[in-house]
Amino acid sequence: MQSLPKTLAEDVAKNLVMVARLIDEDPESAYGYSRVALRLASRVAAVREAAGFAAYANQKYAEALAEFRAARRMTGTVELWPLMADCERGLGRPEKALDMAGAPEVQKLDKAGQVEMRLVAAGARRDMGQLDAAIVTLQSSELASNSVQPWTARLRYAYADALHAAGRSGEAREWFAKAVEADRDGSTDASDRLAELDGVEFVDALDEGEADDTANADDKD
């Protein structure tokens, strides 16, 4: 944003900060801030990228794809390629996402980006009803590795979920357990899925308390 006047740059930066703060907990508000930043500085790549993320978080996939494409044209980088492919999935075009998974741009991605592309490709296979192909797509050295990386929990979870969808419950349980081991920040619900497979039922303490209150009230009557 060095090309912007100082005051304008500060206003844009404030809106981008709010997008980053709110995108996980309040994506709708984050989207609103991104639109303000876009009106102020649509020729700044960081603004177009932030607008893309905000639109993506709100499932506005056509808009997100347009913003990601604009950011990519401005920067020439391929980092957004997996997200662009996932937008194609969101728009009901899994075949296009698979085409992008086989494009030369994928080889230019870092390891995290390549794993993300693998997740998107597997999702596209599932969209097309190709469960076995989705399972094979996720089988990789990253999945087999015992080291825990930022993508490990999501990769193991996706594999477990695909196995479960294919009726391979025993294997699914094993991989949900492995996902739990890697999920240090609770980014997935692997622990809940594992408990579900084990037949464990969770009772909401609040609901249980309300039920007791109701029973007591009935007794008084």
Rank of each mutant, 00 (worst) to 15 (best):
K6D: 03
R126Y: 03
A166H: 12
G170M: 07
R89I: 03
L109G: 10
Y31M: 14
A97F: 09
V148W: 06
K108M: 10
T137M: 14
S34L: 05
A51D: 05
I135P: 03
G32T: 03
T77R: 14
I23F: 01
R35I: 11
A134K: 07
A165L: 12
L65F: 12
D127Q: 15
K96G: 02
G170P: 03
T75A: 07
D212M: 09
S145V: 05
A70K: 10
A215C: 04
D207H: 10
E67S: 15
G32H: 10
Y61M: 07
G113H: 11
T214A: 14
G170V: 04
V17S: 12
A9L: 08
A211W: 07
L38I: 08
F68T: 01
K178G: 05
E79P: 06
V44F: 12
V200D: 08
M117H: 02
M117D: 06
D221R: 13
R193G: 04
V120K: 04
L109C: 00
Q59K: 12
D212R: 14
V106C: 09
N15C: 15
R35P: 10
L206G: 01
T7I: 15
P94V: 03
S42Y: 07
F202Y: 13
E208T: 05
A51S: 09
E63Y: 07
P94K: 12
K178H: 10
S42P: 06
Q139G: 07
L119T: 06
L65Y: 13
G92S: 12
Q139A: 11
R39M: 13
W81S: 04
R43I: 09
P27V: 01
A211Y: 05
L65A: 13
N146T: 12
E201V: 15
G90I: 09
E210P: 03
A64C: 08
R93W: 05
V19S: 01
E49R: 05
E142M: 03
Q139I: 08
R73Y: 02
K178V: 05
L16D: 01
A133M: 08
K111D: 13
E142R: 01
W151Q: 04
R72Q: 09
